[in-house]
């Protein structure tokens, strides 16, 4: 499946066209990280990129964010070729990216202030997202006073408050413990339902991908390429109990098989 996966009913808003990425390694050899990537995503879709390490999933996400210029190919958003980074494409990183010198509130207001919104609108928008991620009462705390899971919530609120069209997430919950991770996934789905932006989520966790996504892009390594795209046929809203259901396990098994083949 190398050609754009176009949906018949709705034109894709995000089109990834012919992306190729080469890197020069330290010893001077050329490394082909991504080759011939063609994908199309609809508005409000929840997409995951999954694959073994070295399949270039993070690189692809960074290209979509505009943090990395591809060797070849382009990304079109609503018909326009993207260039560089933009507040319209928010990104949550695996590392802790919350600014330690700002309080919770100031962190969440960071992007809003850059938009030159009136002061009271910035306040109101920040308040809204602080409440939505359940950090009420922690507004004036510094990040060092928060747990890892809470800091991740600040990070999510900061990006969501910026109302991006596209949420890019690079293994955002990778550093959290299992319990916190599950909570964060449920919370992310709620935020996604509220905000309505398209999400592209990079992970190597099968359960995470199945629980969250509408579609899962399975990537194969060396060079990174699209192996297949799996539709997740689980109804929404998805709640915690779903994880133990037969249908969930069946989907997880399916994804496992897709990943295993010639891996």
């Amino acid at each position: 499946m190398s050609q754009a996966n176009l949906d018949q009913t709705e034109a894709p808003s995000l089109i990834i066209q012919n992306i190729r990425q080469d890197f020069i390694t330290l010893d001077g050899t050329e490394l082909n990280v991504l080759d011939n990537i063609n994908l199309g995503f609809r508005e409000r879709e929840f997409i995951s990129f999954i694959g073994h390490s070295g399949c270039g999933k993070s690189t692809l996400l960074r290209i979509i964010a505009g943090l990395q210029t591809p060797t070849q190919g382009s990304i079109l958003y609503k018909g326009k070729k993207i260039k560089g980074t933009s507040a319209a494409r928010g990104m949550v990183f695996q590392q802790d990216a919350v600014f330690p010198w700002l309080t919770v509130r100031k962190n969440i207001e960071f992007g809003l202030k850059l938009k030159k919104l009136p002061r009271d609108k910035v306040r109101a928008q920040a308040e809204k997202w602080i409440a939505l991620v359940g950090l009420g009462g922690w507004e004036d705390a510094y990040p060092k006073e928060l747990s890892g899971g809470m800091r991740k919530r600040v990070d999510l609120a900061r990006v969501y408050a910026n109302t991006p069209d596209l949420m890019l997430m690079d293994e955002p919950f990778g550093a959290l413990d299992q319990q916190t991770k599950s909570n964060m996934q449920t919370q992310l789905l709620r935020l996604w339902e509220t905000a309505g932006s398209t999400v592209i989520f990079v992970t190597h966790d099968l359960e995470e991908a199945v629980f969250l996504s509408d579609r899962i892009v399975v990537l194969a390594p060396r060079p990174g390429r699209v192996k297949t795209i799996m539709d997740v046929s689980l109804s929404r809203p998805r709640r915690e109990e779903l994880r133990l259901s037969e249908e969930f396990l069946a989907e997880k098994r399916k994804l496992h098989e897709l990943l295993k083949e010639d891996a």
Binding site: T85, G90, M91, F93, F99, F110, L114, R158, N162, L168
Partner: peptide, 14 residues
């Protein structure tokens, strides 16, 4: 200055 702070600011529109 950690790279992740710079990239986070950049994707927030800075």
């Amino acid at each position: 200055v950690p790279k992740v702070y710079v990239e986070a600011a950049r994707t927030l529109g800075a």
